[in-house]
Simulated scan of single mutants.
Amino acid sequence: MPPTQLTRQVAARIVDYIRSEQVSVGTRLAERTLAEHLRVSRSPVRNALRLLADSGAVAEAERGGYTVVDTDPDLVTETEEGVDETVYLAIAGDRLDGDLPDRITESALARRYSLTPAQLNRVLRRASSEGWIERLPGYGWEFRPTLTSPQSYADSYRFRLTIEPAAILEPTFVLDRAAVEHVREQQQRLADGAIHELDNVALFNINHVFHETITECSRNEFFIEALRRVDHLRRLVEYRRSLPRSSGVVRCREHVEIADLLLADRRAEAAERMREHLGTVTAEKTDT
């Protein structure tokens, strides 16, 4: 699904910042610093950086954040994004179906999906940034492991059921109020009906940002990285599998409740509500 207007606006402001401040190639862009400079929460900055990564303007840094790749970038058009999204999902689907080998060349992908070099570059950058394909040293690309069996998918939810409530109770937990208010607002919009307008990709992206935003407040890098890793692994499966939208509305309301408890500084209750929420979703999505 194309980026929201807010994401586009923040991305454009980041581009203006890169140009006006004459930020050099290789400079690291930190979410927190950009959020403070632009006076927005970290969530829209995170989404904007992902959009810029898809366009090739920035790239994910090894130790988190992003680095500048192009100091005078142009954002792709909505038409280009629509084509990219279609191809992206086709590659993801073919990979899940076992129709693509573990290793593949760019020329093979370009031929199979009738892609221009620019289109191929954008799609590979996105898949790479989302963690399910990586460039091989020298030549070609390799698909990284994803969750494909029902058991591994169920295990991922059991793991989340363990770490996410624990992250809320960490002694280092510091609420990022602006970020939590932002994701709460997103969830409220979904619960109010917007969920019926979104496809599985867009819904997954909004929901995983909600959970990652809360876990990031723990300030525990092991919890944070573990959840990101699990989200990368389950991403392709979630693109195909989601709850009925009627059930999704209920889960979004539960997200709002969790956010409200955190904003009211009722962490113990929020952790328990998170545990109940994930337990229900685990049962619904894995038929256990």
Rank of each mutant, 00 (worst) to 15 (best):
D72Q: 13
P73K: 01
D94M: 11
A59Q: 09
A53Y: 05
L89H: 06
G56K: 08
T86G: 00
L49Q: 11
L89V: 08
G82L: 07
E85M: 02
S55M: 09
L51W: 15
G65T: 05
L89W: 03
D54I: 00
G64M: 10
D72I: 04
V83Y: 03
G56S: 07
D74R: 14
R50Q: 13
A90H: 09
N47F: 13
A61N: 06
R50D: 11
S55T: 12
Y66M: 05
I91Q: 01
V76P: 07
D94V: 03
V87D: 00
Y66V: 03
V58Q: 09
E60G: 08
Y66N: 01
D54V: 09
L75M: 09
A90L: 09
P73M: 02
D72L: 06
E81D: 06
T79D: 15
N47M: 09
T79I: 13
A61W: 04
E60L: 14
I91H: 02
R46Y: 14
V76R: 11
G93S: 10
A92F: 01
R50I: 06
E60W: 05
D94E: 14
V58T: 11
T79L: 13
V83S: 09
Y66I: 02
A59H: 04
Y66K: 03
L49T: 10
G65D: 05
Y66S: 03
V83R: 14
V87L: 01
V58I: 13
A57R: 02
Y88N: 01
A92C: 12
G82I: 08
A48S: 13
G65K: 02
A48D: 05
P73R: 03
D70S: 02
G93I: 06
T71I: 12
L75H: 04
E60Q: 14
R46W: 15
G82V: 04
E78H: 10
L75R: 02
D94R: 07
G64I: 08
A90M: 13
G64Q: 11
D94L: 08
E60C: 10
V68K: 09
A53T: 15
R50T: 03
E60H: 11
V83T: 15
D74W: 04
T79S: 15
L52V: 07
P73L: 04
E62G: 07
R63W: 04
G56A: 10
N47V: 06
A92D: 08
G65L: 08
D70I: 08
I91N: 02
T77W: 06
L75I: 07
T67C: 09
E78W: 06
T79V: 14
T77N: 05
R50W: 07
A61E: 01
R50A: 10
L75G: 00
T79H: 15
V87F: 01
G64N: 08
D70H: 03
A48V: 07
L49C: 08
G82E: 12
A61H: 15
A48M: 08
A59P: 02
R63T: 12
D70T: 00
E78A: 15
G82P: 01
L51P: 12
E62Y: 07
Y88K: 01
D84I: 04
A61C: 06
L51A: 14
E80P: 03
A57F: 04
